[in-house]
């Protein structure tokens, strides 16, 4: 009996160890290594044939030099800050766009809801890369948006959207919006309608009822949605590199440059370790929020 319990608990922990802890330790080890011209391009590597002395030998050669290097150059903290800013603003706009959609879906007639749900999920059937690429066609100077605005006579010259931070915001909001909509929808659909009726009976206006009942009760969904958007947006690489300008500073791009242009795997790993440390705070907060939500539901 006891063994069964232990093995049940062990499964998620083994999962965590194999898919998170081990990869993290490998990256962390590389971040303490030195760059080398060899395969793989860093030193020292673990020589298993020497057993324990090989391991001791490897550990003695590790140091925190790469982290000191990151602290010395302002490029890195500026990139982290700029990524935080882009992720926060995008999350805000995702909420602004996502909440009304989720609200509309939850209040739509029952028989429409599966179709509406499908429409939100449908874009996932196309590759993420193709969707971002197609935004290039929409946002460019000769793109459909500019053509349309000029045809309407609203503007005389095409707006420069592509290759600016605006395009990055549009790309992130568009791509991650479903991650905001779905958890909010999930909480709104469970909302007890009689609460709103009661509020109205007691003389509460509809807007007031929305702010005092609907929003607080969907808080868990809002928080979950915000984290689901914020966490991947912070390390985003594809969207800023395809839609952003040469001066768009994001940590995902810096990471790519370290890895591919400088071929400096140790510094790239150090950048990744710090990115993970920054993300741990929101991830732990998200975890707690989820736990509380599940407990509340029970």
């Amino acid at each position: 009996m006891n063994w069964r319990r232990i093995s049940l608990i062990a499964v998620p922990y083994l999962w965590l160890a194999a898919l998170f802890l081990v990869p993290f330790l490998i990256v962390f080890k590389i971040s303490l290594s030195d760059i080398a011209l060899s395969i793989p391009p860093y030193t020292p590597t673990l020589d298993l044939s020497e057993g324990w002395s090989g391991l001791r030998n490897m550990i003695s050669q590790l140091d925190f030099e790469n982290f000191e290097f990151l602290a010395d150059d302002d490029l890195y903290w500026k990139s982290y800050l700029s990524s935080l800013q882009i992720a926060l603003i995008s999350t805000f706009f995702c909420l602004l766009v996502g909440f009304p959609i989720a609200y509309g879906m939850a209040n739509a007639p029952q028989e429409w809801q599966p179709t509406l749900m499908l429409l939100v999920i449908l874009p996932f059937w196309t590759s993420f890369l193709i969707r971002v690429y197609s935004l290039i066609g929409l946002l460019s100077n000769e793109g459909m948006i500019n053509q349309f605005l000029m045809w309407l006579g609203l503007i005389n010259e095409p707006l420069t959207i592509l290759n600016t931070n605006y395009a990055v915001y549009i790309g992130i909001v568009y791509t991650y919006c479903p991650f905001m909509i779905l958890p909010i929808y999930a909480t709104l659909i469970k909302l007890d309608g009689s609460l709103l009726e009661a509020a109205e009976d007691l003389g509460c206006s509809r807007t007031e009822a929305f702010w005092r009942i609907t929003v607080p009760l969907s808080k868990a969904g809002i928080i979950a949605g915000c984290f689901l958007v914020f966490i991947p947006a912070l390390g985003e690489f594809v969207i800023p590199s395809l839609l952003g300008g040469s001066d768009t500073l994001m940590i995902g791009k810096v990471l790519f440059e370290e890895f591919f242009s400088n071929r400096d795997w140790p510094v790239a790993s150090a950048v990744a370790v710090i990115l993970l440390l920054i993300l741990i705070i929101p991830i732990v907060m998200y975890q707690r929020n989820e736990q509380r939500r599940i407990e509340a539901e029970q």
């Binding site: 768009t248 440059e257 071929r263």
Partner: peptide
């Protein structure tokens, strides 16, 4: 070499982004 490469990449980022 690795050192000059880092110098060049860093300079290039500075030229492109001003940082």
């Amino acid at each position: 070499d690795a050192r000059a490469q880092r110098f060049v990449t860093r300079m290039w980022t500075r030229i492109k982004s001003g940082t």
